[in-house]
Amino acid sequence: MDTIRLNYILHLADNALILGHRNSEWCGHGPVLEQDIAISNIALDGLGQARNFYQSAATIAGNGATEDSLAYLRDVIDFKNCLLAEVPNGDWAQTILRQFFFSAYQYLLYTKLQQSNDGQLAAIAEKSLKEVSYHLRWSSEWVIRLGDGTEESRTRIGNALEFLWPYTGELCLPAGYELDAASNGYGVDVSSLQSDWHQRVSSVLEEATLAVPETGWMQSGGKQGRHTEHLGYILAEMQYLQRAYPGAEW
């Protein structure tokens, strides 16, 4: 079994699943109906992308693994998503800014992953990129609207910026399996995305009249399975049914 390739694909899948799950928590709770629908659509895209990656990972994992067993029967320490994906939704501003940081990263990542020598990864990237373009546009517009909006909205997105910024460093800090994946031609060296990511994020923050934070100490560890206390709660809710009633279908 190609463990490095499996870890790399699981990392991509876990990012999409966990962020998708977080966004789905807004379903029925959005600030207005249209935006409730928007964030739910974005959640659905994430789950769809995760399914495609998990299906691909399952063929490598063998041993009877399926997309469902990979999503529902692994523990916190097995998950390889970035910490940014699992932080709580907070208010609308925090959710928006998290989505914007992530979409800017996924947009650059999937653009390059289209060149992967793993045909399935290239195909998933090509498909996902079209969806992420919508997410990036939508979240950029919201960051600008909130930052350059009322005193209240500006305070909220400013707080979100302060809270989330230390989680952004991990996005472009490659794990060992990412470096191996890149050198074998099927993955992307995310450190090569850093300057483009910073540039896109800075231009939107500036348009939102928000100061770009200094790059200080950054959180990391999610890609290696060292997570915040929040992931366990997500998995407990998400995996409960399959854990309590193995193989349940409806």
């Binding site: 373009s133 919508y134 546009r137 950029s140």
Partner: peptide, 9 residues
């Protein structure tokens, strides 16, 4: 007219 990521296009 396919979507590009630029805001407020």
């Amino acid at each position: 007219s396919v979507c590009t990521p630029e805001a407020f296009q």
